[in-house]
């Protein structure tokens, strides 16, 4: 397996891990959004959706483990890349002109990613924890919209919105960057990738944000 370790430790190998895990996470968030949309169907629909998922617990657990591995590998290679690159770029210029030569989103990947990471941890330790580990018989719907850890809590809802915007910024660069990493960004696919990228950096984060805003602020107001 020497070739595999060589590959995984190479700069491009690390990028490959980053890209693959990143794109898989994109699929995950897409699926997650579909689930969240059930909230608009009302309490009954949402609760039965979650209950159905719970019925396949072993399968769900396996998927969760896989997602965690993907997520961890994304983070670990992200940290490795960031550290490697800090080392390679020993000192900085007196005048910083990053904005003239590259995009904001591409320069802030580690920061936006880290905020998303903090959000995810918080999200897991609250919602997931309550859904999966300590859940008795109450309504899932209520937890989500509740004042404790749900959208009912304005601080929580605001952070949710910020995290989603930053995830959008992360994916603005990340999504198409992954294709460049796989070497499929030549002109034939460029248009297609750009369109798909829109879905992931704009539509999906906007979807999550909309839910948070709706249930956190707007629905209450009207």
């Amino acid at each position: 397996m020497n070739w595999l370790t060589t590959f995984m430790n190479s700069s491009i190998g690390k990028k490959f891990t980053m890209g693959t895990s990143g794109l898989l996470l994109c699929l995950f968030i897409a699926q997650h959004l579909v689930g969240n949309m059930m909230l608009f169907g009302g309490e009954a629909l949402f609760n039965s959706y979650v209950a159905t998922l719970s019925a396949f617990k072993p399968l769900v657990r396996i998927i969760e483990v896989i997602i965690s591995i993907i997520f961890l590998s994304h983070i670990i290679s992200g940290i490795r890349l960031t550290l490697d690159n800090k080392r390679a770029n020993s000192s900085s210029y007196n005048v910083n002109t990053g904005s003239e030569t590259s995009s904001f989103s591409s320069r802030t990947m580690a920061i936006t990613g880290s905020v998303v990471f903090i959000f995810v941890i918080m999200h897991l330790s609250t919602i997931w924890y309550r859904f999966q580990l300590v859940h008795g018989s109450g309504s899932y719907y209520d937890i989500i919209l509740g004042d404790a850890v749900g959208f009912g809590n304005p601080i929580y809802a605001a952070f949710y919105v910020v995290a989603m915007i930053l995830m959008g910024v992360h994916l603005k660069h990340g999504f198409q960057s992954a294709f460049q990493t796989f070497g499929v960004s030549d002109s034939r696919y460029k248009g297609l990738i750009e369109k798909m990228s829109m879905i992931f950096w704009l539509v999906i984060p906007a979807g999550f944000t909309w839910i948070a805003l709706w249930f956190g602020f707007i629905a209450e107001a009207i």
Binding site: S11, I12, K15, A88, S102, S106, M109, H173
Partner: peptide, 13 residues
């Protein structure tokens, strides 16, 4: 010891 590309595109510019 060169770094890993993160596709920022500054090089091309």
């Amino acid at each position: 010891g060169f770094g890993s590309c993160t596709n920022t595109g500054a090089c091309e510019a």
